[in-house]
Design a protein around this nucleic acid. Structure first.
Length: 414
RNA sequence: GGAGAGGUGGCCGAGUCCGGUUUAAGGCGCUGCUCUCGAAAAGCAGUGUGUCAGCAAUGAUACCGUGGGUUCAAAUCCCACCCUCUCCGCCA
């Protein structure tokens, strides 16, 4: 959510950035409602001032019939004004909340095709044997079972088996240790959140592209990432300036409907309805968010490097940002199977977009202001093992683990 | 599932029976000043969040879980709802 005052002062910017993000917002209508709304508030405040004054006068001496009649008249006017305001708010508030965040000046404009590669790391070596894709590899070794997943839950649900579970835990263990080293506090979180928190974090409970699982008969939704409950962690709080930045690492499953997400690029474990994830989350002062965004991307790079996964950093273009993001990077790993880079991690600075919606502020000598929030993937499961399976597969079909994992789980997987 | 207690400012907490200087006591925290070589302690003063108008000082208004109602006047009375906690039951 943007500050209405900012929209008043920069209507053209808001219009342009919304368009470039791919949202069609009627800014003129929003401002018109805003102006009407303010007029109504002013008028009804005046009437209330009259009533308050009157009740002061009548403290000792009850009002006469005549005075009662005139007070009644004022109250009737007030009811009309309040009603009008309510009508306007019904349109105004959702419209205001639907305005996407602006994006940073250096964001490339255009859609996904305009995403800009910023950095590459790691050797991309041609192996002298044919690398199996992760699904084939895992199924041949009996480490994943989609058929029984489908039987038990449905398509795109799965069981991970034996060493694959150990691998997942080893990656988490390693990532968590790294996060701790960088002063992130580990958290587990509620896997269900109410709709206010969900939408406050910028997710849609009933959007057109259905993504969130809803619990029937309860105002509860399965989380699509621990970012959602972590955003809500400090909802309605006023943090002390000295407590910032607050760095959290949330470990949880992520549940996603992913309706329509089929096709060969989503084969196997790359895109599923449920996966475990360690997510980094930051609450900070506005002036620190750019620096902390760099800290997040650096963390993600460090993790890839320790895992010896070749990657590149991509700067996300305006049309591909989504409503909350002000600035966003993706880290993509090199897939020797697909001969291309594929999404592995992501990290965003959403400035005060979530903080406004969930009323998360901090106090300083300049008064209370909204915090900035940031989020970044630390370790998304299935994706990291996929990257490892594709990049560290040996000619005999075994998987050579990166050194960083060997201390946790020994030599290779078979 | 059964019974009970409770939701008040940054935090703790009084006020609700009996409606009106409550611009919500008091404490903690925070800020400034005094004292001090400095700090602590102590003392003094200040310190809620929005909204609207205004360059500003400031003024007006709203907010005591939420929504209604009664009244000239509601944190306080009435109704409905939501949430939290405690005990019991069930249970990993």
């Amino acid at each position: 959510m943007l500050d209405i005052q900012y929209i008043r002062e920069n209507p053209e910017t808001v219009k342009r950035t919304s368009q470039q993000k791919g949202y069609n917002i009627d800014v003129a209508h929003l401002l018109e409602l805003d102006s009407k709304r303010r007029q109504l508030i002013q008028k009804s405040d005046e009437l209330r001032a009259q009533l308050n004054k009157a009740s002061e006068d009548f403290k000792n001496q009850p009002p006469s019939e005549e005075q009662r009649a005139s007070l009644k008249q004022i109250k009737e006017q007030l009811v009309v004004l309040e009603d009008q305001q309510e009508q306007i708010d019904k349109v105004f508030t959702p419209l205001l909340r639907s305005v996407p965040n602006v994006f940073s000046d250096d964001t490339p404009t255009g859609g996904e095709e305009a995403n800009r590669e910023e950095k590459k790391w790691g050797e991309i070596s041609d192996k002298n044997f044919e690398i199996k894709d992760h699904l084939t590899w895992l199924q041949q070794k009996g480490l994943v079972d989609f058929e029984r997943g489908a039987k038990v839950a449905g398509n795109k649900f799965y069981f991970l088996i034996g060493p694959m579970v150990e691998l997942e835990l080893a990656v988490f263990q390693m990532a968590l240790t790294l996060a701790k080293k960088h002063n992130f506090t580990a958290m587990t979180v509620p896997h269900l959140v109410n709709t206010r928190i969900l939408e406050g974090a910028g997710f849609s409970a009933r959007g057109d592209e259905k993504q969130i699982y809803k619990i029937e008969n309860d105002d509860l939704n399965l989380i699509a990432t621990s970012e959602i409950p972590l955003t809500g962690f400090h909802a309605d709080e006023i943090l002390d300036e000295k407590e910032l930045p607050r760095l959290y690492a949330g470990l949880s499953p992520a549940y996603r409907m992913e309706s329509g997400a089929y096709g060969k690029h989503n084969r196997g474990l790359f895109r599923t309805h449920q996966f475990n994830k360690l997510e980094l989350y930051v609450f900070c002062k506005p002036e620190d968010s750019e620096l902390l965004h760099q800290k997040l991307i650096n963390f993600e790079e460090e993790l890839c490097q320790v895992l010896e996964i070749p990657y590149r950093i991509v700067r996300i273009a305006a049309g591909d940002l989504g409503a909350p993001a002000y600035k966003k990077y993706d880290i993509e790993y090199w897939s020797p199977v697909d001969k291309t880079y594929r999404e592995l991690m992501s990290c965003s600075n959403v400035t005060d977009y979530q903080a406004r919606r969930l009323n998360i502020r901090f106090r300083s000598e300049n008064g209370t202001n909204f915090v900035h929030t940031l989020n970044g993937t630390a370790a998304a499961m299935s994706r990291i093992p996929i990257a490892l399976i594709e990049n560290h597969q040996q000619s005999d079909g075994s998987l050579l683990l990166p050194k960083a994992l060997r201390s946790v789980m020994g030599e290779g997987l078979i």
